[in-house]
Design a protein around this nucleic acid. Sequence first.
RNA 1: GCGGGGGUGACAGAGCGGCCAUGUGCACGACUGCAGAUCGUGUUUACGGGAGUUCAAAUCUCUCCCCCCGCACCA
Length: 478
Amino acid sequence: MALRLYNSLTRSKEPLHPLTPGIVRMYVCGPTVYNYCHVGHARAYVCFDMVVRYLRQCGLQVHYVSNITDIDDRILTAAAQSGESARAIAERFTQAYFEDMQRLSVLRADHHPRVTDTIPQILDLISTLVDHGHAYFVDGDVFFDVTTAPQLGELSHQDPEQQLAGARVEVDVRKRDPRDFALWKSAKPGEESWPSPWGAGRPGWHIECSAMSIAAHGPQLDIHGGGIDLIFPHHECEVLQSESATGKRPFSRIWMHNGHVMIDQVKMSKSLGNFFTIREVLAHHPPSVLRFLLLNTQYRKPVEFTPEAMVEASKALLRLQQGTFQLASSASAGVTEASSQWAPLAAAIASYTTAMDDDFNTRDAIATLFTLLSAYAQDAPKLSAADATTALAFLRRVEDVLSIGLFATPGSPQWASTSPLPAVPSAIEDAEVMRLLAQRDAARARRDFPSADTIRRQLSEAGIEVQDVGGTSTWRRR
RNA sequence: GCGGGGGUGACAGAGCGGCCAUGUGCACGACUGCAGAUCGUGUUUACGGGAGUUCAAAUCUCUCCCCCCGCACCA
């Protein structure tokens, strides 16, 4: 396997050599559940879902852990504003997160630990840091002492001396060094809190990921992922805490960071208010189209999210689905162990593998699909069922990784459409569409074109667009 | 200020020393009962500006310009 992945720590592409041969320990920073996830979150989880799927297809056993941060300042703020309990808010948005991910075909991680279930491990980790002189206590709060960690700046590649030059946040005067960060925060009256040796409180922002990763994977892991905005301070702090507590380096062998989703060339973010939630987008587009859009750019590059981009994505995806549909209809159902001499297929398999092995270049991988389907369209008349069947097997393998609905059936929820899907099911049911289409096919077979056209017009008025592809008809909701 | 990532044809976006990326759009043609989808052919010197290295540069070096991201809120 010639797989190479970009490591933010070394700033270069490296082969993957897991701590335990054949087994990949992987952790991805999950959401803080105080609101619905937006397209930016979707990108992160779709990208890492693709990574996990591809690694598994390469024969690696991936142990994938992704946390739920269900206690945090922002959740407490939301609770104070709405009057709801922090726990209720966290629970509600945790469920929403899982629903959104399921619709986007993001597989569940093997384990989704929650911060509130990990408090004992967090307290242990903080105690260890205090005992070893890496952390100190100041009236209710515990801070990490950055001067005890020589690896400061290693992951973010910052000169530690320069780090405060552009600081945007006011520095807590109780810190010994302005760069120190909170491991434990004392509770204000009424806030959800846990008892600790330092008084009632809750974990600081960074410690939970260290604790959960160590609990699940041990002191070291192979791949740690998240959005590029997490490199600093979040992941930098994780490195300092984890390595100082366990004495093992590196905490993670490979750090992977996905690029942002942009709106008008600016990062989509909650604080700027320029975001679309996943459910807003999915109210108007098939989930496969959003997933396709996100995977149609290499995961480290920024991706522009616009209505036009969604339309273009749906057109491109529709072509792939149409092509796959035609290929499937010419493949022989009985042939399973097919072999093919068809050159474009071998070329497609080779370039797909090269693209994916090169730090998961899904954009390039998708380009090979267009090339393959276009070659198929040209060569179709002279190809055997075995050729088609082998090509189809390849497309299935691709679909297992990308999960963009290549094998969607016409009219199904994953079938791309350029216009919004109705939020509520339209007046006409799928079964009724199928029945009318069967009637129309029969009419066409006996060359009764006026009847066929009447049915097509009738369906069109119900918002169903019918397309004749080869011998079969496909349809989609407009 | 410090650190990072970019600027590719009408648009989106790969490539990162020599070979047609790919998709969308547009134009013309083919096929189809019609429509659409599909197929073919185009869309003139595509690589931010300038200098250099090389037989050969979008790709390497230097320099300048512009955009974005991070700097203790964030996927």
